[in-house]
Computed example of a mutant assay.
Amino acid sequence: MPESLQLTILIPLYNEEESLPELHDWIVRVVSERQYTYEILFVDDGSTDDSWLIIEQLSNQNSHVRGIRFNRNYGKTAALQTGFQAARGQVVITMDADLQDSPDEIPTLYDMITQEKFDLVSGWKQKRYDPITKTLPTKLFNAVSRWISGVQLHDFNCGLKAYRQKVVKTIAPTLYGDMHRNLPIVANWNGFKRIGEKVVQHRARKYGTTKFGLERFVNGFLDVLVIAFVHRFSKRPMHFFGTLGTLSFFVGSVMAVWLIVEKLINISRGVRFRNVTDNPMFFFGLVAIILGVQLFLAGFLGEMLVRQSLNRSGEQFVAERVGFTEQKASV
C-alpha cells in the first residue's frame, strides 16, 4: 500500500512552463508553514512546450513532487481522472496551473474537509478578472446547472476544489468527456451530499493565454444534460421512453378517435364531409401513434438490456458497515 498523506495538490496543466516554478514554490511555502504531509501531483496533458522538463526538474529538487505525462492532449477531465486515481492524500485539492488560483486558500479548504466534515468544497470566484465574453456565459452555465442538478453552487467551473479522498476514488471511474465542469453534480449523485462552497481569490493571468474557448460552455451544458439523463434513467429506461411513448400514443389515439367521431356525426346529420385522410390531423395522429409505439418498445428493450447486464455482472453498491460479524451458514 502506498503511503497515505494528509494532502494531495493535484494540478492538471497544458503548456504552462512559465508558471510552474512559481506555483510550486508558493504551494511548498504554504504547506510547509502548516507542516502538512503532502504531495504535489502534476498531470501534463500533452504539453508541447517545456512543461514536462520543468516538472522533472521540480521532482528532482523536491521528493514530494510527482508527475504524470500524457502522450497527447486528452483534455482536463482525463487529466483529473488520472490524477484522482493516483492521489494518495486524505484530502485532494485541485487547482489550475496558471496562477489564477491562490495556494493561500489551501489551509482553509483542508480544514473545511477535515474539521467541518464536508465531502467536497468548491471555490467561488466572486470577483473575476475575466472579460465579459467569459463571465456572462459562465453565469448562464452556472444558473442552468443549478436548475437541472439541484446542487446550489455559484461557480461549478472553478478549478479550485477540495475533496475527501473517498469522493475522488468513487467518481474517478465514472468520468469522461468534459465532466470536469460538473464534478460537484457527479459527486452529489453518487451519494456525497455534504457539498460546501468558499469564496476564493481570483487572480489575473500572469503568463500565457487561456486554453479554453467559448465552446466549453456549450459542451458543459450538454454534459449536464447527459449526467442528468444517465443518473435518472440509465437503470430504468422505461420510465423515460415508456412515459413519452404512452403520452404520444394517447395524443395520437385521441386525434384518431376525434376524426372518426366527427365523421360519424356528420354522416348522421347528412352533412357532406371530406374524407378523414384529407385532414392533416389524421397524419399527425398517425405519426404520434407510431412514434408512441416505437418509444414504448425502445423503453422495453432498454429494460431488457439493463436486466441482462445486471444478471451477468451484478451491481456494485458503495456502502459502509459497522457492527457486522461474519456468520457461517449452518447445515
Rank of each mutant, 00 (worst) to 15 (best):
P2I: 04
E3V: 10
L5E: 13
T8P: 09
T8D: 08
I11G: 09
L20S: 08
E22I: 08
H24K: 07
D25C: 04
V28K: 10
V30E: 09
Q35G: 02
F42R: 06
V43E: 04
D45K: 01
G46S: 06
S47R: 00
L58C: 07
L58A: 15
S59R: 02
Q61R: 13
N62I: 03
I68L: 15
I68V: 09
R72F: 11
N73A: 03
Y74P: 08
A78K: 06
L80N: 09
T82F: 09
T82Q: 14
A87K: 02
R88A: 15
G89A: 11
Q90Y: 00
D98M: 02
D98N: 08
D98K: 00
Q100M: 11
D101N: 13
E105T: 10
I106A: 10
L109W: 01
Y110E: 11
M112K: 14
I113L: 08
F118G: 08
F118V: 07
F118W: 08
D119F: 04
L120Q: 04
S122N: 13
W124C: 07
K127F: 13
R128A: 14
R128C: 03
D130I: 00
L136E: 13
F141H: 12
I148Q: 10
I148S: 09
G150L: 02
H154Y: 14
D155Y: 07
F156I: 01
F156T: 06
C158Q: 04
V167S: 03
V168T: 14
K169N: 15
K169V: 10
Y176S: 15
H180S: 14
R181N: 12
W189P: 00
G191E: 09
F192T: 03
K193N: 13
I195Q: 06
I195F: 09
E197C: 05
V200E: 10
V200H: 06
Q201R: 07
H202C: 08
H202D: 15
T210R: 03
T210D: 15
K211T: 15
F212S: 15
V218K: 13
F221G: 06
L225W: 01
L225S: 03
L225K: 01
F229S: 05
V230M: 11
V230G: 02
F233K: 01
P237V: 04
M238R: 05
H239D: 14
F241C: 00
T243H: 04
F250V: 13
V251P: 04
S253D: 05
M255C: 13
M255Y: 10
A256E: 11
A256K: 01
A256P: 00
I260D: 05
V261P: 01
E262W: 10
K263P: 02
L264V: 15
I265R: 08
N266L: 12
I267S: 07
R272W: 05
V276S: 03
V276A: 11
P280G: 06
P280K: 01
F283R: 05
L286C: 08
V287E: 06
V287R: 00
A288Y: 11
I289Q: 12
L291I: 06
F296L: 02
F296W: 05
L297C: 06
G299V: 02
G299H: 04
F300Q: 10
L301E: 13
L301Y: 13
G302T: 06
M304Y: 11
M304A: 14
L305E: 13
R307C: 02
S313M: 06
Q316I: 13
E320Y: 10
E320L: 07
V322L: 09
G323D: 12
F324Y: 14
T325G: 05
Q327E: 15
A329Q: 12
S330P: 01
